[in-house]
Design a protein around this nucleic acid. Structure first.
Length: 276
DNA sequence: ATGATGTCCTGGGCGC
DNA sequence: TGCGCCCAGGACATCA
């Protein structure tokens, strides 16, 4: 499911519900997501209130007043919903619940169990194993053409693999990689050291445009993603190439069909006419 | 060291 | 209706 726009939508959605609320209970319904769920989570978080909520890459971070941070990743199929905690009722595939004061709770729903939850001291987050290899945020100035050019210069990897690699730039997954490359009119198999600085610059602005637009739409609801109130995002209706294999390209006067190929084991969609 | 491949896990959709 | 197969938005470990 969740790439940067979806994670940002979750963060924006839970923020007004739990900011300054106190954690009063933590319950896990599985002992393992991507990693084992530590038994000490409860004692590290219960009784403390939420000071700040933000996103880094595809991680959701809740800073607590005791200098601990709750880190959540949604993996492929993770969702978070905000509920009134009146009935202690777990939904299908809920893997953990965090209860807050004033009867608010977060339920983490994840059928495939590829997500994670970890509590890490706030001041050690950046150097933690989860964060230390992360590249710049795509919406920040650190992600610019000279930076990207340097990365691309001595590699013959397809450009799509570069922009999906969290080491080089974070937040872009399979959907938005295809969408950004379409907007930039660059074919996803193009070897990255063949791209000119101009093309890379256009790719950067395209990535930003696609991500910003999707955030405004509440993300893409494909299969199981929804916003924290259960409403669907809308960006799935805006997708130009992702999931449109065999359909006609939407670019004016282009009659080509959208193709699907596999790059690094992942489905990749593009227009063979518009993208060079 | 880098890039390609396999793997964690479950469910939905399809063809037979 | 049921079974088996393929596919899925992520990210790591492992191997060449």
């Amino acid at each position: 499911m969740p790439e940067l726009p979806e994670v940002q939508t979750v963060v924006d959605g839970i923020k007004p519900n739990i900011l300054r609320r106190k954690v009063i209970n933590f319950k896990a319904y599985t002992n393992k997501l991507r990693y084992p769920i530590s038994r000490s989570i409860s004692e590290k978080i219960v009784g403390n209130y939420v000071k700040n909520i933000y996103r880094r890459a595809k991680y959701i971070i809740l800073d607590l007043n005791n200098s601990q941070s709750i880190v959540v990743h949604l993996g492929m199929s993770g969702r978070i919903i905000v509920l009134k905690a009146d009935k202690d009722k777990k939904l299908k595939h809920t893997q953990f619940i965090i209860q807050f004061s004033k009867d608010i709770e977060l339920q983490y729903i994840d059928p495939r169990k590829f997500g994670l939850i970890k509590v890490i001291p706030s001041n050690l987050l950046q150097e933690s194993k989860l964060f230390v290899h992360l590249g710049p945020e795509p919406l920040s100035r650190l992600f610019n053409k000279s930076y990207l050019k340097k990365i691309c210069n001595n590699k013959n990897t397809p450009i799509k693999s570069i922009i999906m690699n969290q080491k080089y730039v974070v937040g872009i997954g399979n959907i938005y990689a295809s969408e950004s490359l379409f907007l930039a009119k660059i074919t996803p198999i193009k070897v990255c050291n063949k791209l000119t600085i101009k093309e890379l610059s256009l790719l950067i602005t395209s990535i930003r445009k696609v991500l910003r637009k999707s955030i405004q739409s509440g993300g893409s609801s494909i299969s199981d993603y929804a916003m924290v109130n259960g409403k669907l995002g809308n960006y799935q209706n805006e997708l130009e190439v992702y999931g449109r294999e065999g359909s006609i390209c939407r670019e004016k006067s282009c009659q080509s069909k959208i193709l699907r190929i596999v790059i690094a084991q992942r489905s990749t969609f593009y227009c063979p006419v518009c993208q060079k």
